[in-house]
Design a protein around this nucleic acid. Structure first.
Lengths: 208, 208
DNA sequence: CTCCTCCTCAACCTTTCGATGGACCTTGGT
DNA sequence: ACCAAGGTCCATCGAAAGGTTGAGGAGGAG
C-alpha cells in the first residue's frame, strides 16, 4: 500500500473538527497530522507539518480562511487546500479559489465525496462540485462592486446613515449617495436594507 | 457495564453529522441508533427508535429544530434533547429551551463537554453552559417584541417598504410606522437597516 | 368593572434616502 | 496624442422614512 495521505484540518468549532478527525481516521490511508482552530495557527502548523492536503473552513478567528490560504500559498505555492464550509455565499467561493484553493466542498455533501475530493486534490486535480461551479458562474456574470462601493456597503450593513458614511470616508454625503445608488443597481435591489441583507446572503460582507 | 446510551443525531450537514457519529462511536457506552438530516425525519425516527438522548441542530430543512423539539416532546414528554448548534442568537436559545430542550451546547465546545452533557442529560439533569445562560439572562431582561412587531420586523428584513408592509399585513402605513418606531426603540437602534442586521444577529429572524 | 397591553389609525414635522445629471481624473487602448 | 471607459466626486429635488403626540377599540388580569 502507498504512503498515507497526510491531512491538516482547520476548523474553529472544536466538536465539528474532532468529528472530522474521527471520520477521516476511519479511512486507512488517511492520517490527520495537524489540527488548527484559527487561521494564524493554521499557517504555523502548515509550515511545521507541510501536510499533503489541508481541509479549511473559511470562518475562523484571528485570521479568516481566505487570508490563511493566501499566506500558506505564498510560502508553499504547491499547497493543496480544500475549502470545507457551510456555503458562505458566492463571494467567498470566488475569493477562496482566487487565493489558491484547489477544492471547495460544502458540509452538506456526503462523506464519500469528501474522501474522493481529498484523493483527487492529493493527486493534483481540483474538485469543484457543479453546484458550486454554477454559483461561481453566476458571480462572474454579475456586476462587480468597486472598492469604494464595497466600503460603503460594509458601512451600510453596520447600520450607518449616509451622513455617517460620508464622515467616516471623509467624502460628502452626495458622493455617498452616488455610491449607494450604484450599489443598489448592481445588487439589483431598491433600498439599503435589501442591500444589507443580500450582501450578507451573498457573503460580500459578514456580521461579526 | 450498564446498557449503552442510545443516541439520535439530527443535523442537516451530512459531513458534520457523519463526523459526530464517528466521534461518538469512539466512546464505548454510546451507540448511535438513528440519524436525521431534517426536522420531519427527526420526528419520525424518534417515534421509531425512542433514543435515550437526542442531539439536535436548530437550522434544519423542512421543519426547524425548535418545532421538531416541540412535536417530539408533545408525543414523548420525557424525551431528552440536547441542542447542538453554532450559536444562532439569543432568541433561538430561548425558544429551544421553551420547547423542552434539556441542554444547549455550542459546536465550539470541546468533545469532552459533549460527552459529559450527554451523560448528564441521560441521567435526568440539564446542561446549560454558563456562557449560554448569560445570554439567556440578557434576553430575559431585554424588552420582548410583540407578535405584530415581529411580523413587521420579518418583512423589514426581507426589504419591504412601510407601504409594502402595510399592504401585506392589510393595515395602514401609519400603523406600520407605529410598529417600526416601537421596534427601533425596543431593539435600541435608530433605523430599519440596523433593525434588520441586529435581528439577524440576535436570531430573531433568519435569512433563508 | 377597571387597569393594562396590544393593535390600530391620524396629523404634522424633520431628517434621510434614492434618482438624476454632470464634473474631474486616471487608465488603457488606438 | 487622443479619446473612450470607468471610478470617484458633487449638487439638487421629490419620495420615503423616522419622531412625536394623541386617541379609540379589543382582550386579558386583577
Amino acid at each position: 500500500m502507498a504512503d498515507p495521505i497526510r491531512i491538516m484540518i482547520v476548523e474553529d468549532h472544536n466538536i465539528v473538527r474532532q468529528g472530522l478527525v474521527a471520520l477521516l481516521q476511519t479511512v486507512s490511508d488517511f492520517v490527520v497530522v495537524a489540527e488548527a482552530a484559527d487561521g494564524r495557527r493554521a499557517v504555523e502548523l502548515f509550515r511545521e507539518h507541510q501536510p499533503d492536503v489541508t481541509l479549511m473552513d473559511l470562518r475562523l478567528q484571528k485570521m479568516n480562511g481566505v487570508e490563511a490560504i493566501g499566506r500558506i500559498r505564498s510560502d508553499f505555492p504547491l499547497a493543496r487546500i480544500i475549502v470545507l464550509t457551510t456555503f458562505d455565499g458566492d463571494e467567498d467561493i470566488y475569493r477562496a479559489l482566487q487565493a489558491g484553493a484547489r477544492g471547495y466542498l460544502l458540509k452538506g455533501m456526503e462523506g464519500d465525496e469528501l474522501m474522493d475530493a481529498i484523493r483527487a486534490v492529493h493527486a493534483g486535480k481540483s474538485r469543484i462540485p457543479s453546484a458550486v461551479a454554477e454559483r461561481l458562474a453566476g458571480r462572474m456574470s454579475g456586476p462587480v462592486l468597486t472598492d469604494r462601493e464595497t466600503d460603503v456597503l460594509r458601512l451600510i450593513v453596520k447600520g450607518n446613515s449616509n451622513k455617517e458614511i460620508a464622515s467616516k470616508l471623509t467624502i460628502t454625503e452626495a458622493t455617498v449617495k452616488t455610491h449607494v445608488n450604484n450599489l443598489l443597481s448592481k445588487l439589483g435591489v431598491s433600498d439599503r436594507t435589501q442591500a444589507a441583507t443580500t450582501a450578507l446572503q451573498r457573503g460580500i460582507v459578514h456580521l461579526d
